[in-house]
Computed example of a mutant assay.
Amino acid sequence: MNSELVVCGSCSAANRVPTERLAAGPKCGRCGRQLFGNGPISADSALFSRLTGTGSLPVLVDFWASWCGPCQMMAPAFEAASRILEPDVVLAKVDTEAVQDVAARYAIRSIPTLVLFRGGREVARQSGASSERAIVQWTRAALAKG
């Protein structure tokens, strides 16, 4: 039986979930919160590392800042994209002002910037505000490439 390692956005616990049960509303074994359907995860440095390094699902990260107009405009589209892409992709948001070490590590120079991680490595990057449809299409195309 195939399974995925899903990191809880609330308590950072790693949960092994059978692949065929990902869409069935799995809950965290530690805190009991649903693993999907809560919208994008707001990630600090530690949670970002757990999501991208421990979890086995691809992670799409929106690097943003509260003062950024295009970031604010894209936020509802990113939220809507999470409802389409989950549970195949985990969506997270990293505030570049609050989590400067992660933004610096990935050389985020303009925001919003979407970065797709798979297996702990960056596999695709796109800067600028996008619509829900564009986020979903870009993510699926990047995952299909490998």
Score class of each variant (00 low, 15 high):
1 M>P: 13
3 S>N: 05
6 V>M: 02
6 V>I: 11
7 V>R: 09
7 V>I: 14
8 C>D: 12
9 G>I: 01
9 G>W: 12
10 S>L: 13
12 S>W: 10
13 A>G: 11
15 N>V: 14
16 R>H: 13
17 V>N: 10
18 P>A: 10
20 E>P: 06
20 E>Y: 13
20 E>D: 14
21 R>M: 13
22 L>I: 08
22 L>G: 13
23 A>L: 00
24 A>H: 08
26 P>Y: 14
26 P>M: 09
27 K>I: 14
27 K>Q: 15
28 C>A: 08
29 G>Y: 10
31 C>W: 15
34 Q>G: 07
35 L>Y: 02
36 F>K: 02
37 G>N: 02
37 G>F: 14
39 G>W: 00
39 G>K: 02
39 G>E: 00
40 P>Q: 09
41 I>Q: 00
41 I>F: 02
42 S>Q: 14
42 S>T: 03
43 A>P: 13
46 A>K: 12
46 A>W: 12
47 L>K: 04
50 R>V: 01
51 L>F: 01
51 L>E: 07
52 T>C: 01
52 T>S: 06
53 G>M: 07
53 G>Q: 05
54 T>V: 15
56 S>A: 00
56 S>R: 07
57 L>C: 03
58 P>T: 09
58 P>H: 05
58 P>Q: 14
58 P>G: 03
60 L>P: 06
60 L>G: 04
60 L>I: 01
61 V>Q: 06
62 D>W: 04
64 W>T: 08
64 W>Y: 15
65 A>V: 13
65 A>W: 11
68 C>E: 01
68 C>L: 09
69 G>V: 01
70 P>G: 03
70 P>M: 01
71 C>D: 07
71 C>S: 03
71 C>P: 02
72 Q>W: 00
74 M>T: 03
77 A>R: 06
79 E>L: 04
79 E>C: 05
80 A>M: 03
80 A>R: 10
81 A>C: 05
81 A>V: 03
84 I>A: 10
85 L>P: 10
85 L>I: 10
85 L>S: 10
86 E>N: 08
89 V>W: 00
92 A>E: 05
93 K>M: 05
94 V>F: 13
95 D>V: 04
95 D>H: 04
95 D>P: 09
99 V>E: 14
100 Q>G: 15
103 A>G: 13
103 A>Y: 08
104 A>W: 13
105 R>N: 03
106 Y>T: 00
106 Y>P: 13
106 Y>N: 04
106 Y>Q: 02
107 A>Q: 11
108 I>P: 08
108 I>E: 02
109 R>F: 15
111 I>T: 09
111 I>K: 03
111 I>N: 09
112 P>C: 11
115 V>D: 03
116 L>Y: 08
117 F>E: 12
117 F>A: 13
118 R>I: 01
118 R>L: 00
119 G>S: 01
119 G>T: 10
119 G>W: 07
120 G>N: 12
123 V>W: 11
123 V>D: 01
124 A>G: 03
126 Q>Y: 05
127 S>M: 07
128 G>M: 09
128 G>C: 07
130 S>V: 14
130 S>N: 06
130 S>E: 04
132 E>N: 03
133 R>H: 09
133 R>F: 09
134 A>E: 06
135 I>L: 11
136 V>F: 07
137 Q>M: 08
139 T>C: 01
139 T>L: 02
140 R>E: 15
140 R>W: 15
140 R>P: 02
141 A>S: 15
141 A>H: 12
142 A>E: 05
143 L>R: 10
143 L>G: 09
